[in-house]
Amino acid sequence: MLIDFHTHHHRSSLNLINVQVLHVSAETRSQALPNICSLGLHPWFMESSWQDAWHNLEELSQLPQVIAIGECGLDRNCKLPIALQTIIFQKQIQLAESLQKPLVVHCVKAFSELIALKKQAKPMMPWVIHGFHKKASVYQLLLEHGFYFSFGAAILQDQAFVADAIATIPTSRFLLETDDRQDLQIEQIYERAAQLRQISVNSLEIELLETYGKLTGN
C-alpha cells in the first residue's frame, strides 16, 4: 500500500492512500470532500475577511475523512500580512490539537517564526513540513525541534542536501507526496526514496504505513 500524503489531485487505486489537500472557503461543502483529505486555510488564498472560511473549517474538520489540518502556515512571499497569517495559523494549531489531528505546514522564508510558534504552542500533535526542499542547516534545525517531513519532487532532482536528508532521516519522521504535480506518480517518489535509503520499495511501504498510522491514528 502506497501513501501520497499531500496531493492536490484525485487519484483512485486499490493500493493507494491518496490524501487530497483542500483549501476551505466559506462555500466548501461536506459533500464535495474526498474520502481521505486534509483541510486548511492556506495563506495564499486568504483574504482579510477570512472568518467565514474559518468557521466552515471548524465544522468540516470534525468529519472522519479529514485526517489532518492544513496545509496552513506562514509565507513571506504572499500578500497577506504576516501578522494576520500568524493569527490564522495559530487558530489552526489549536484546532489540530483539539481534534487530535496532525498539522500539515506550508512555510516560506519564515522558519524562525515557525519554530518559535511551535515552542510557544507546545503541541502534542505532529507538525509535518510538506514538500521539504530547503538546505541542510534548516532541515537539521527542524529535525531537532521535532518536526516531521513530507518529501516530494525535490528528491528526484540533483540536490545533495535533500538526498542526504532522505538517506539519513529516522524511519518514523517522514512521508512522501506528489503535491500539485499531476505529471508525477507517487511510485516514482517511492522508488527514488527507497534507492536513497538503500532498502526495497516493499520495505519502505511497510515503514511509511506504520508512520502514517502513528501520525493519523488510521
Rank of each mutant, 00 (worst) to 15 (best):
Q100C: 08
L141P: 03
Q90M: 03
G146H: 06
P170V: 12
P170G: 13
R173I: 07
Y148Q: 06
I129F: 11
S112L: 05
S137P: 03
D158P: 07
F149C: 00
P170A: 11
V105S: 03
A154Y: 01
T171M: 11
L114S: 02
K122P: 03
K134W: 10
A136K: 15
R181C: 13
Q159C: 14
L103D: 00
V138H: 12
I82A: 05
V104T: 03
I129Y: 02
D183R: 12
F89V: 03
V128Y: 00
S150K: 05
Q159D: 15
W127F: 14
T86S: 07
E187F: 14
P123K: 05
A136F: 14
H145M: 02
H130L: 01
P102A: 04
C107N: 03
P170M: 10
A154W: 01
F174D: 02
K134L: 08
Q100P: 01
Q120Y: 10
Q85A: 02
L142P: 08
I189M: 04
R173S: 08
L103V: 07
P123G: 02
H106N: 12
H145Q: 07
A110M: 03
K118W: 10
K122C: 13
Q92P: 08
E187G: 15
E177Y: 03
P102H: 05
Q185V: 11
K118C: 09
I93F: 05
Q188E: 15
Q159G: 13
Q100R: 13
P126N: 07
L143P: 02
S137L: 10
E97S: 00
